[in-house]
Nucleic acid binder design. Sequence first.
DNA 1: GTCGCTCAGATTGTGGACAATTCTATACAC
DNA 2: GTGTATAGAATTGTCCACAATCTGAGCGAC
Lengths: 210, 210
Amino acid sequence: MYRELREAIVSGRFQPNERLVEADLERMLGAGRTTIRAALVRLDQEGLVQRSPNRGARVRLISDREALEIEQVRAALEQMVAREAAYRASARDLVDLRSELARMRAHVEHGDPLGYSELNASFHQRIWAIADNRVATALLATLKSQSIRFQYRTILQPGRPVRSLREHEAIVEALAAGDPDASEAMMRTHLAHVIETLRAAIERQAPAVP
Amino acid sequence: MYRELREAIVSGRFQPNERLVEADLERMLGAGRTTIRAALVRLDQEGLVQRSPNRGARVRLISDREALEIEQVRAALEQMVAREAAYRASARDLVDLRSELARMRAHVEHGDPLGYSELNASFHQRIWAIADNRVATALLATLKSQSIRFQYRTILQPGRPVRSLREHEAIVEALAAGDPDASEAMMRTHLAHVIETLRAAIERQAPAVP
DNA sequence: GTCGCTCAGATTGTGGACAATTCTATACAC
DNA sequence: GTGTATAGAATTGTCCACAATCTGAGCGAC
């Protein structure tokens, strides 16, 4: 039940800020209100849903500012994870990463930013797995689900996929060299560019508020 | 209710791994089982409680390994937050930080590591506030409550408070200089030492498993 | 002695009922 | 027209009862 509701929210079947009335969800998902309620409490704690006392639950709207904060936190964690992965990556891991990279390159060359974006996500997850830090992985996963609505604002920018791909290649090289400092640094510059792109996209869309 | 249960767990009134039977809590806290249940679901999602289907809830036991993972995540976030704080710290903030430092110094000189430890926590929180990143602050707070049981394993090590104090002074100097790189670097070495101290304490206590 | 079985007791999971609160629409005063 | 009061509808919060599940003790077969 929690899974289903979560999926419905993350996949965008509910709009941001949309009310989640317990009785409606009850019919929609075919579960008792008690069960729905428990799921809403979890999703609230997870930051996907906002509940106010006696006023029910809504799909949480992530503001532009919060999206940037999330991206900064994500960057900090991914840097640490990349460093850790440099210590731990096996030959097999590197083979997998390089084949992932090849597939990403294909999508870029065919001008398919959306397909690239999906592979991008699984590329990063692969690094999380190598680093083998469950706490970090769990946090990164919930951060990603919170900010999912913002992902296209970066990858759809003209020229971004090509640069993004080069940055990913640099990360793999550093990991292959077993160089923790370089791996962290490459991940840092990669995500600094992501943040910069996102910031620019946001400012362009919402120009100077008086 | 959530607050009360949380407080009871974090403050150690329940032992790690202790069963949390809903009926008992009902009497103990004077609330209906429904309310207790909602609080347990939240605490589960927060990582303070572990619930298994049909088998109820327990106070979550943080393993040594997980404590180290948490500390690594915390380090990554605190570095980022220190950098951000360097951009934003006002003259007033620096005055506050320095007076906090003075109090910490007093506790070290009087040989009061526990008092020092408390001030230590509020020192870091002050930096979080300066950085003004709510997402990071929230995560840091929950990480802290999860790993609270481990805090004395570092600060009670002989000689640790003195070194810790010096590291905090270095952080304030970097912040005062408005130097983001230095602030991040000072925070990094500070927390690297914390992690190293914790790792040593854990290994000493649980020597080589065959 | 140990393994497997059964059954009672303890505990959690879920649906329904009712109380408490908030929201909405209408009526009324100015 | 604007603002305020109020009744009724909509919705959430909580208690309770009962079903589903797990746990552990007792007992017998081997």
